[in-house]
Design a protein around this nucleic acid. Structure first.
Length: 572
DNA sequence: GCCGTTTTCGGCCCGACTGTTTTCAGTCG
């Protein structure tokens, strides 16, 4: 069992303890144990009770809880809390800007236990009247509640892909393997998904239906299901799933039709008819045959949005889309120096084991106190360790980086001589996220214009399905990156995927390099780069435009050139 | 609940921000 799962249950427990008004210090000790365990470079499942008790912040009671989770996969204390909490209240706990204490008050004083009633209460000014609330809180709560309702049933791509893969495996046991596929948004690798769509040959329809009805993992929605469609819900994540059935001779046509964004299908072929109409004329054997009939090159599923794929096809140079194998190094990563879970050495050796040529370590900078950001003397210590490791691991190389906080006024949080000691600087915003578009854009552009800024980190700060992006003028920000020779990252964490792929295309057109960065806080995080590759492909990204597809030598040359220019500039 | 000691009891991770207060609690990264 992974640490992540254990910590997830402990976090839920701590949150619910707060909702039920447990002793504040008891809650604090849970949170401090979680805080320490997130940074602990150990595999909890390998430890017994007495070894667990020796960990920082873990005593007898929490050690016993961890042991229980390892043994049974669950925690009775947590289950008891969950049984006492209405589903609607659990949903209310996700309101951004409101923690368990505020939710507790609303639940207890007003008896509100779901988002719909909460919205009604906001409209009737009942929330603003509560102690500790006011008009502003009420407005924020209303907005946040509406946001949550609009995201119901959505899951992140990572979850959608996992659920789809498991379901496909199940279906392939019941019917002809060749007639089972993902389709729709999940096949187009969208960043968030609702519903997860699958296309299946109709031959074993009834067998599939009864098998799914018996399954413990899914609920079949009888009302919304019909002869050509099964509507399900995955129980654990509440993800919505649509399974379409189609006669096998029509499979390729249906796969093509249901995969594409409707905008794609209205495209007129050279014969002056839409792709949609073409599909009605003939049952094709494969998608390749459909493209051939339309006199088009093969267009990868993730590009079928009706945005720019036909323009690419017309120019006769369909891009060879980026693949994970094209990436030669991993930039923007954290270690135990700040808030990462693994040591610098482990991060480096694992990166090397995976076959990469280089690693860029960019721990948090000093302003990020919550993340144990690096004071100047610790920067120096880290650089000494990197020099040692580089001797040991050569020809593999660790680049000295930093994720420098962009302060409110757009400046970075180290003096020039410290900034100059890094090979590269990722500039990111972590605090004061509630800016208007003008302020946020100016703040970013000021940071981009800093001669030491190598790369812009997660440009909008969004957390998909959880926190809206702060508004920015993407075009102005990207133009600034082009002007100041700054790389933009696609932060590949499945909750971020920021820069959004819709703007990656603009960045490419402007000649801005894109770096696919995992923002890894543990070795396992490296594998998230796959999700960055998925969204990069949607924008038509190729290896040529991807910074970390460059070799170690090329990356080094870029870093050096940028730094020399910066030093020249501050001298003059 | 955990920790550390001047060892069985008292204090508890950091700093900023927000919106509510009228000095501070709650939330967040």
């Amino acid at each position: 069992m992974e640490n992540k799962h254990i910590l997830k249950l402990l976090k839920q427990t701590a949150k619910l303890m707060e909702l039920f008004g447990e002793n504040d210090f008891k809650i604090k000790s849970y949170n401090s144990a979680i805080y320490n365990l997130e940074k602990a470079d150990v595999r909890l499942a390998d430890l017994d009770q007495s070894a667990l008790e020796k960990l920082d912040g873990v005593g007898k009671s929490i050690a016993a809880s961890i042991a229980e989770i390892i043994e049974t996969g669950s925690l009775k204390q947590l289950t008891d809390y969950q049984n006492k909490t209405p589903e609607g209240v659990m949903e209310m706990m996700k309101l951004s800007g409101f923690g368990p204490k505020k939710i507790k008050l609303i639940w207890e004083d007003l008896g509100i236990d779901n988002l719909t009633d909460l919205i009604e209460a906001c409209k009737q000014d009942k929330i603003a009247a509560l102690k500790g609330f006011g008009a502003k809180s009420q407005d924020k709560m209303l907005e946040s509640a509406k946001f949550l309702i609009s995201r119901r049933g959505f899951v992140h791509y990572r979850e959608a892909e996992k659920i789809a893969e498991a379901l496909i495996e199940h279906l392939q046991e019941l019917t002809d393997k060749n007639f089972v596929s993902t389709t729709g948004a999940v096949r187009r690798k969208m960043e968030v998904i609702k519903p997860i769509e699958l296309l299946v040959g109709a031959k074993e329809k009834s067998k599939i239906k009864s098998s799914l009805e018996k399954s413990a993992n899914y609920e079949v929605n009888e009302k919304l299901s019909g002869p050509y469609k099964l509507k399900l819900r995955e129980k654990e994540t509440k993800a919505e799933i649509d399974i379409y059935f189609t006669p096998e001779e029509n499979f390729a046509n249906e796969l093509y039709r249901t995969t594409a964004n409707p905008q794609h299908l209205v495209h007129q072929t050279d014969k002056g008819e839409s792709l949609y109409k073409l599909l009605k004329q003939e049952n094709f054997k494969s998608e390749e045959a459909i493209f051939k009939a339309a006199d088009l090159p093969f267009i990868a599923p993730e590009l079928r949005e009706g945005l720019w794929e036909f323009e690419m096809a017309k120019e006769g140079n369909m891009p060879k889309l980026i693949e994970t194998d094209d990436l030669k190094g991993i930039l923007h990563n954290h270690s135990t120096y700040s808030d990462g879970a693994n040591t610098l050495e482990r991060m480096a050796t694992y990166c090397k084991e995976l076959g990469y040529e280089y690693l860029g370590i960019s721990d948090h900078s000093k302003t990020a106190a919550y993340a144990n950001g690096l004071q100047e003397f610790r920067v120096k210590q880290q650089h000494e360790e990197i020099d040692e490791l580089n001797k040991k691991l050569a020809p593999f190389k660790i680049f000295k980086g930093i994720e420098s906080d962009i302060l409110n006024d757009g400046s970075l949080d180290y003096a020039d001589d410290v900034l100059a000691s890094f090979d590269f600087v990722v500039a990111s915003i972590h605090a004061q996220l509630n800016m208007d578009e003008k302020t946020a854009t100016e703040r970013l552009i000021k940071a981009i214009s800093n001669p030491f800024t190598t790369m812009l980190g997660h440009p909008t700060g969004r957390l998909l399905l959880q926190r809206e992006a702060y508004p920015i003028n993407h075009y102005a920000v990207i133009d600034a990156c082009a002007e100041y020779n700054v790389i933009i990252e696609i932060n590949a964490h499945p909750w971020r995927l920021d820069l959004d792929w819709r703007y990656v295309k603009y960045a490419i057109d402007k000649g801005v390099m894109i770096s696919i960065n995992p923002d890894a806080h543990e070795t396992k995080g490296y594998h998230d780069m796959y999700y960055g590759v998925c969204v990069g492909r949607k924008a038509g990204l190729t290896a040529k435009e991807t910074f970390n597809a460059l070799s170690q030598k090329e990356v080094e040359a870029h870093f050096n050139k940028k730094k020399e220019a910066a030093l020249q500039l501050i001298k003059s």
